[in-house]
Amino acid sequence: MSNSQPDNQPEVLRFGQALNRALGDAMRADDKVFLMGEDIALAGGPFGVTRKLLDEFGENRVRDYPIAEASMVNLAVGAALGGYKPVVEIMFMDFCTLAMDALVNQAAKAHFMFGEQGPVPLVLRTPHGGGLNAGPQHSQCLEAWFAHIPGLIVVCPSNAADAYGLLRAAINDPNPVVFVENKRLYSAKSDFPADPQPIEIGKARTARAGNDLTIVTYGNTVHLAEQVAKERAEQEIDIEIIDLRSLQPWDESAVLTSLSKTHRLIVLHEATEAFGIGAEIAARMADIGFDELDAPIIRLGAPFMPVPYSVALEAEFGPNADQLNAAIDRLLL
């Protein structure tokens, strides 16, 4: 039994609480930061991320927006051009379709197409992912769309500490950032540092060191990878896990370094496998990492179908431990 005092224990925080703390700290640090979203002020957000911020910062800085995503994100672009740092929340990532012009044609292009006259420092927070039986229009992982657009930054944390550090970095960043939050993580608890700092965008984290095989992943599937890696360690299969954290830009050198050590690569994500983040990473590693590969690169993501509603159907939708184990077996056995 440890005799250490509670004061010396690392604080444990829920993912959603870490985001809330990051928003509050960012707003205290810079009075140009303000929030807009549907039901974020009075109601505190559908997942509680903006809870109590209205009380501290008032309705000028924590704004309930009508259900009108297209104008909301465009207003954020205009306010950002006017020197503010808006953080907007899109209630479910599926609803980003309604704000695509604002993100793709306006926010992403303004800095480039206006000849670098002014940055667009906006952050769009949005939850992705299934597992809540929320059905085809409330469960999608659409991050690859945004990673495909020059001018946008895309991040997706897997734990409370990274959620805080990446959100602070995203708000500080002069570029538009799509900040993706896996909705199954909101209530997940993890260690939180005593003096949390912004985390550099574009840097991956080694979630687990290993020598036999690399799993590159991000968001909630980091935990799937960790669970499977722990089980396979009992069979003396030593898996390295790279948590990308940032998807655009992604940490190519960290992935290549790991591949150069393990020579086997699985790219795992909850998003649709076809034409996804994994396709980009696999193609890039097949090019610059070709000499390091002892086996084919395996992608593991969702099947090419909408996210189904039924508990029975969504349970099989994956990716799951069985599929990941099968991929590991294919590479090692």
């Binding site: 303000f34 205009g78 051009l81 006017g82």
Partner: peptide, 18 residues
């Protein structure tokens, strides 16, 4: 983008208000 600038200007008006 036709109408693209309208909500951006409204965002600028929000900045002016603030």
């Amino acid at each position: 983008i036709v109408a693209g600038g309208i909500p951006i200007a409204v965002g600028s008006a929000l900045a002016h208000q603030l």
